[in-house]
Amino acid sequence: MSASDVQAIEVRGLSTRFGETVIHRDVDLDVEVGQMLGLVGGSGSGKTTLLRAIVGLLVPNKGSVKLFGESVFDADPTIRRNLRRRFGMLFQQGALFSALSVYDNIAFPLRELRVLDEDMISELVYLKLGMVELEPRHAQLMPAELSGGMIKRVALARALSLEPELLVLDEPTAGLDPDLADNFVKLIRMLQKELGFTVVMVTHDLETLAGLATRVAVLAEQRIIACGTPAEVLAVDHPFIRNFFCSEHAGAVMQKGIV
């Protein structure tokens, strides 16, 4: 285990804006190692943007982001590179390399390490495929030949290929039918139990949230208006939270998840 006093993610005073539009104002966020944080918020509230800032795809206008106590923008390139190998990201659209087969997509980050032989890489690829419940025969397919659910699975397998300590998921279940979404949630929960990684995920889907998140952060009005266990967040009195969680159906789902 990593030293437990180090936070997996530590966001301090983060502000971002595009031109005149302010997306985040002084956002603070802490995620402890081993937690599964669900980030919710209205459409266009800047959830994806926050994730991009966390993984270092976007330089914030103000504030700092630290992963495992180190900055993604550290001056030392070796620190930056080693840090980037400690997390895996699942993009909203999958972002598979369209010119590479499923096999090569998953093998790509492993080959980049230049320490594993091709035999080992092949075993790892098929292991990851098995982990996301894909068949060996799917390995030679091209991304264009995959269904939506399969794309998400392959993208997850690729995100998992470097054995990340932090998994960043952007809408992992959006666009999947309820059955597939359910399987996906079970899959991530099982893997998390076995591998013990930290998860940060953006989701609109209450079932996913209830099924996975040990903590919930709510993004609204350009900041995090609530962050805590699902029960704590439900207790916060805010119009967005009332709307989002407290419709009849939502309440039922969340209650089921908390129990």
């Binding site: 092949s122 075993e123 098929y126 292991l127 098995g130 982990m131 060996p136 390995a139 076995e194």
Partner: peptide, 18 residues
């Protein structure tokens, strides 16, 4: 037990792959 499950997963990798 937790380490054993990692080994068990490695044991399930299909042999006739490529």
């Amino acid at each position: 037990a937790s380490h054993r499950s990692a080994l068990e997963r490695a044991a399930t990798i299909p042999m006739d792959r490529r």
